[in-house]
Simulated scan of single mutants.
Amino acid sequence: MEVVKDGMMSARAPESASTKAAYEFGFLLEQSLGHVTHTKNLLVNVARDPEVHAHWGLIDFQATGIAGRIPVYRNNWTVRAGTRAYRQVARMNRKTKLDALFFHTQVPAVLAQRWLRKIPGIVSLDATPRQYDELGAFYRHEQGPAWLEAWKWRLNCDCFKSARRLVAWSEWTKHGLVQDYEVPADKITVIPPGVNVDEWRRPTPRVPHSDPVKVLFVGGDLERKGGLVLLEAFRSLRNLGLELHLVTKDRVPPEPNVFVYNNLEANSQPLKDLYHTCDIFALPTFGDCLPMVVSEAGASGMAIISTNVAAIPEIVRNGDTGLTVPAGDAASLTQALRDLATNPALRVTLGEHAMAHVTRHYDALTNASRLLGLLKAEANAARAEKLATSMARFA
């Protein structure tokens, strides 16, 4: 994989001197929150397909240098992402003839619709803008005046119409596209982001043990992800001798049996080891669409506790692949922790069900292959359309 410039990379799977990749695909990927981990997984898995030569445009969230001083641009993520994506597709297109484009999320695609109309494109999203607005308070996001929201809605409708297909991370997202943005259901394919299951699977099966039960929390924003509520519930269960392991960017004052990790990298082996040594994964989040850490926990065979927010119940099916509690309900969270801490057999059963569910539906390699299959189909369709047009011209 070669870094070109300005967040752009070009990569293909190894090939012999006599072969050439059949498809040239451009990937424009938002780099914020969990989308960074999604990008890392795609970089690895797309490179395994020898038919694909991938061009990567990584759309950074930050506005630095001179760009950080330009009004509107510095304060508006849609403007920044769209401008950067547009320029990066232009660079890719000068370098080679692209067969298809893949945008994740719709944010960088909204102002790059000229390319979506010119090159077959797929837009992927974890949540619609209106769904994000519903969770906005937890992301420190506020809606604008009515005229601005109406304009934003129209821009997104046009973007979804310009794309050949849409990929939704969940059924929850798909429902929002159909209900709020007039997208035909058959234009949408649900493909979750997933994790590389083989890399996250625990080396040995989980069994009941007599050591302290370890609870794991992974969330950069401790408050939004429910970490403060989890600390409250944990303190009320000190008599059970639990340990709480917090992976977060935030600082946490020292207290007994609480272990804090501020510098663990996504997909790193130390992080995977922590998933493998802990027993319960707790993410009592207030605001999330489909947090990838939950599928990581499932792949690790952990008993999961989370909240019934957005698409989370599609992974954490209450009583089957884990337990869900209302967001902010410390009493319900305390009871769920108590139930799992005192019932080793239940922990093992839920963890096994979670691992089977994630393996079947959230494996990153399988789902990357599905994405590439959609891109190839759209590229092939566009080639056939071009050929038919040429033949008709000379008929």
Rank of each mutant, 00 (worst) to 15 (best):
G226T: 04
L216F: 04
D221Y: 05
R202G: 04
K225N: 05
L244I: 04
L240D: 07
L177A: 08
N267P: 03
L264F: 01
A233K: 01
A168S: 06
W169K: 11
G220F: 05
V195L: 11
N257Y: 05
S170C: 02
T204D: 13
Y181C: 02
V197Y: 07
E223N: 10
Y275Q: 05
E199M: 07
F234M: 08
P212D: 14
W169S: 14
D198Q: 14
D186W: 15
L222Q: 15
L264E: 01
R202N: 11
F217N: 03
W172E: 00
R206Y: 07
V247F: 02
L274Q: 03
F234R: 05
R235D: 01
V213K: 00
D273Q: 15
P270H: 06
V197N: 08
R201Y: 06
E223W: 12
P254K: 08
E199I: 03
V247Y: 01
E171V: 03
L237C: 12
R224I: 09
L264A: 01
V197G: 10
L271N: 12
P212M: 11
E199A: 08
R238A: 08
P253N: 14
K272A: 07
L274D: 02
V195Q: 07
W169Y: 15
P193R: 08
A233T: 03
V252D: 03
T248K: 00
P256Q: 07
L244P: 01
K187S: 12
W200V: 04
W200A: 06
S170F: 00
P212V: 11
R206A: 09
N196E: 11
R202Q: 09
K249I: 09
L231E: 08
E265K: 10
V258P: 05
L244M: 06
H276Y: 10
N196V: 10
T204G: 13
V197Q: 07
V190C: 00
N257L: 07
L222C: 14
N262T: 14
W169L: 14
W172H: 02
V252L: 06
Y181G: 02
R202I: 08
A266V: 14
E199P: 01
V229R: 13
V207P: 12
V183R: 01
G176W: 00
H175A: 15
L230N: 10
T277Q: 13
V258D: 05
V183M: 03
T277W: 10
N263V: 09
L271P: 08
R201F: 07
D273F: 13
A185D: 13
V213C: 06
K174H: 07
F217C: 03
K249V: 11
W200K: 04
D180R: 15
G241T: 06
R201N: 10
V218K: 01
P203H: 10
H175N: 15
A185R: 11
T189R: 13
G220Q: 08
E223M: 11
V252R: 03
